Simulated scan of single mutants.
Amino acid sequence: MSQAVLNVEGMSCNHCVNAVEGAVAEAGASGKVDLATKQVTIDYNIDQVTVEAIIAAIEEQGYDVIK
C-alpha cells in the first residue's frame, strides 16, 4: 500500500469533504480529508490506481489539486 498527500484548493465545508473523499473512493483508493490544512491523505495500491487518476477524479468534482 502506498500513501500520498495532495493539496486541494476549493474545499470549505463538510459537503466538500464528502465530495473529495467520494471521488477518491470511486477512483479505487481511500482518502481522508483534513479541511483545516486543505489536504487529502490517500492510501492506494499502485498496481490498481495511479495518483494521476485520483487527481483527475478530484478535479472532476470541481476542486483544484496543487502539485
Rank of each mutant, 00 (worst) to 15 (best):
V5I: 13
G22L: 00
K32I: 05
N45I: 07
D47N: 08
G31D: 00
Y63G: 07
C16W: 13
M1F: 11
A4M: 04
C13R: 14
Y63E: 08
V17D: 00
I46N: 03
N14S: 15
G62K: 08
M11I: 14
I54G: 03
V20N: 03
L6T: 01
V65S: 05
Q61F: 09
A56E: 14
A56K: 05
D43C: 01
A4S: 07
Q61H: 09
L6K: 01
E60Q: 13
V40A: 02
G62P: 06
I42W: 01
L35F: 12
A36H: 08
D64G: 12
G10W: 10
I46L: 01
A36C: 11
S2Q: 13
K67V: 04
S30I: 11
A57R: 01
I54M: 05
E60T: 10
I58E: 09
V51S: 02
H15E: 13
V20Q: 04
Y44C: 02
I66A: 15
G10M: 12
G62D: 11
I42F: 00
A29N: 04
V65L: 05
I54L: 04
A4W: 01
M11Y: 14
A36T: 14
E21R: 08
S30L: 11
Q39G: 07
E59V: 08
C16T: 13
N45T: 09
G10K: 11
N45L: 08
T41W: 06
L6G: 02
D34Y: 12
A23L: 01
N18G: 11
S2Y: 11
S12W: 15
Q61W: 10
E59R: 04
V33M: 04
T41Q: 09
M11N: 11
A36K: 00
N45E: 15
I54C: 02
H15K: 14
S30R: 15
